[in-house]
């Protein structure tokens, strides 16, 4: 679930507040806060909409792992899913390079 909103990366645009389908964030006038972590569906979509890769959703869906921002930064995990898709700065991209049709043939 969502665990980190990095205050050093966040530009306070509140896009995450708007796009989270589960409404887990609250706007504060500054850096948004995770107000309803329990509702997070671990879909990672807030990460890819974030223009500054300031959000981190850990892989465990049942509860928080307690991972630190320092570890996420050290392991270069911020923005990892966006890079894998080809999205950049919150903008969509990369679907034209999706090789899934090759997987379907192999299947």
């Amino acid at each position: 679930m969502i665990e980190i909103v990095s205050a050093t990366r966040c530009v306070e645009c509140d896009i995450c507040v708007k796009v989270c389908p589960a409404n887990v964030f609250d706007a504060t006038g500054g850096v948004p806060v995770v107000a309803r972590q329990e509702d997070c569906q671990t879909c990672f979509l807030c990460e890819i909409y974030c223009p500054t890769d300031a959000l981190y959703v850990a892989e465990v869906a049942e509860g928080p792992t307690g991972i630190s921002e320092a570890e996420v930064e050290a392991r270069h995990l911020f923005g990892g899913y966006a890079r894998a898709l080809g999205w950049r700065r919150g903008k969509a991209g990369g679907s034209q390079f999706d090789p899934t049709h090759r997987i379907r043939v192999a299947q």
């Binding site: 990672f44 892989e59 995990l77 894998a84 090789p99 192999a106």
Partner: peptide
Amino acid sequence: ALQGWLRQGQPNCFVPYDRA
């Protein structure tokens, strides 16, 4: 080759592995 296509084509499936 398939490993590469899976990683590139289904990136969300690999997020849990990469993070863990």
